[in-house]
Amino acid sequence: MSSFFQRQLADYVQYHRAPWNCAMHVFGIVFLFLAAVLPLSRWPIAAFGIQTSVAAIATIPVLIYWFLLDFALGAAILGAAIVLLSAAAIIVAQANTVGMWSLTAVLIVIGSASQVIGHQVFERRRPALVDNPIHLLLGPMFVMAKLFIVLGFRRDLAIIIDERQQGPLSSS
């Protein structure tokens, strides 16, 4: 884990102390990722002799970034991204254009609302990305780090997250 990632994660945790805010982020991040890749999944493309979609190609830079921040978390996010990209491919294969755009709009509204409600209602603080736009890319890393900790892995992450989450809103 890079020192840059440690600092960014520690800063991100300060905006995500309330357990309900963290739970809302799990759904919000998944819905927003799916909303972002859904329309791009409609455009097939051949890359390196492999048939794929613009969505898969568009995720490569951010996946590389996550791998560079932390290889294990990046690998886990890659697995989640494959599942979500596969779900998007299935959806676009079954839905017409209006249905796909309607679902995209619903996912954006629900995903964004869960983020806003999580911060406004449970955290009583504005979203982290308002103060530091790079936090937009740290959300998936934070969610995956929390999952690793719950499963008993990555004590180094637990130290950063649990130590920083000790605040007035961290009680369950």
Rank of each mutant, 00 (worst) to 15 (best):
M1W: 10
M1P: 14
S2A: 07
S2K: 10
S3R: 14
S3N: 14
R7F: 05
Q8R: 08
Q8P: 01
A10V: 01
A10I: 09
A10K: 13
A10Y: 00
D11E: 13
D11T: 09
V13Q: 02
Q14A: 10
Q14D: 12
Q14Y: 05
Y15L: 12
Y15K: 03
H16E: 07
H16M: 03
R17T: 05
R17I: 07
A18N: 14
W20A: 03
W20G: 02
A23C: 14
H25G: 03
V26I: 13
V26H: 04
F27G: 10
F31K: 02
L32P: 01
L38T: 04
L38A: 05
P39A: 09
P39G: 01
R42G: 03
R42I: 09
W43M: 13
W43T: 10
W43D: 08
P44T: 10
P44F: 05
I50K: 02
I50M: 06
T52Q: 06
S53Y: 09
V54S: 06
A55T: 00
A55P: 06
I60A: 15
V62D: 04
V62Y: 11
L63D: 09
L63H: 12
I64C: 08
Y65P: 01
Y65H: 09
W66K: 07
F67G: 04
L68C: 14
L68E: 10
L68P: 06
D70A: 08
L73E: 07
L73G: 04
L73N: 07
G74W: 04
A75H: 00
A75V: 09
I77F: 08
V83I: 15
S86V: 13
S86W: 15
S86N: 15
A88G: 08
A88S: 15
A88W: 04
A88P: 05
A89I: 02
I90Y: 10
I91D: 06
I91C: 11
I91T: 01
V92A: 03
A95R: 04
T97P: 09
T97Y: 14
T97S: 11
V98F: 06
M100D: 05
M100T: 11
W101T: 08
L103M: 15
V106Q: 09
V106L: 15
L107Y: 08
L107R: 02
L107S: 10
V109Y: 12
I110D: 02
I110C: 07
A113Q: 11
A113E: 12
V116S: 05
I117T: 12
I117S: 11
Q120D: 13
V121R: 15
V121I: 14
F122S: 03
F122Y: 14
E123L: 08
E123D: 12
E123G: 01
R124A: 07
R125V: 06
R126Q: 15
P127G: 05
A128D: 06
L129E: 11
L129W: 15
H135N: 12
L136A: 11
L136F: 10
L137Y: 12
L137H: 03
L138F: 14
P140Y: 01
M141I: 10
M141Q: 08
F142T: 00
M144F: 08
M144S: 10
A145K: 00
K146G: 02
L147Q: 00
F148G: 03
F148H: 06
I149P: 01
L151W: 07
G152D: 01
R154E: 12
I160V: 14
I161M: 04
R164W: 02
Q165R: 13
Q165Y: 00
Q165V: 01
Q165N: 07
P168E: 13
P168D: 11
L169C: 07
